[in-house]
Design a binder for these strands. Structure first.
Length: 153
DNA sequence: GCCAACGTTGGC
DNA sequence: GCCAACGTTGGC
């Protein structure tokens, strides 16, 4: 089992959307960055994913989701009405991937980015690397443990 | 293959 | 709302 972190704007999709319907898979789609897409492709069923809220009032890790369906072609790339439509994609040659995730855990309080930056031992985590905009990233078991400890959960 | 222009991300 | 940093595009 592997660990990941995925960013989302909570206006679009938040940990509350997972927690509200814990059994219902949420499709993680709309990723349009090649490196992030490649990481989506590496996700396996059962992997755990920190859900990170960005561009909002409480920036930070809000909880954990679990991968319920491994990567498949992101349907939104074929939908002309979707903001994520990509005319260069064909069913035979999809450019973008999605996975499904279900709720795993909602933290009582968000583990803030400020706090994350203050934690020792997170060197190499793309989230805190200067200028990194990677929206899906792997998290080592060591980093996962440090972050989980810091939530107090 | 270079690189300027552009659009996007995302913290502040 | 600002703007630095970044990834992608497309002309050459």
């Amino acid at each position: 089992m592997a660990f990941w972190l995925a960013k989302t704007e909570p206006d679009e999709c938040s940990i509350d959307d997972f927690a509200r319907a814990p059994q219902t898979p949420v499709r993680w789609d709309g990723v349009r960055n090649f490196q992030a897409r490649n990481y989506l492709g590496q996700m396996g069923v059962g992997d755990l994913v920190f859900i990170y809220h960005s561009s909002c009032r409480e920036i930070g890790i809000a909880g954990i989701a679990r991968v319920s369906t491994a990567a498949y072609p992101d349907p939104s790339q074929f939908d002309p009405d979707s903001p994520y439509h990509d005319g260069r994609s064909t069913p035979d040659n999809p450019r973008w991937l999605a996975v499904d995730m279900v709720h795993h855990q909602r933290f009582e309080r968000v583990l803030s980015l400020t706090r994350i930056k203050s934690l020792p031992g997170l060197e190499g985590l793309p989230l805190i690397q200067r200028g990194s905009r990677l929206s899906v990233m792997p998290v080592t078991a060591e980093h996962w443990e440090i972050l989980l400890q810091a939530t107090g959960a």
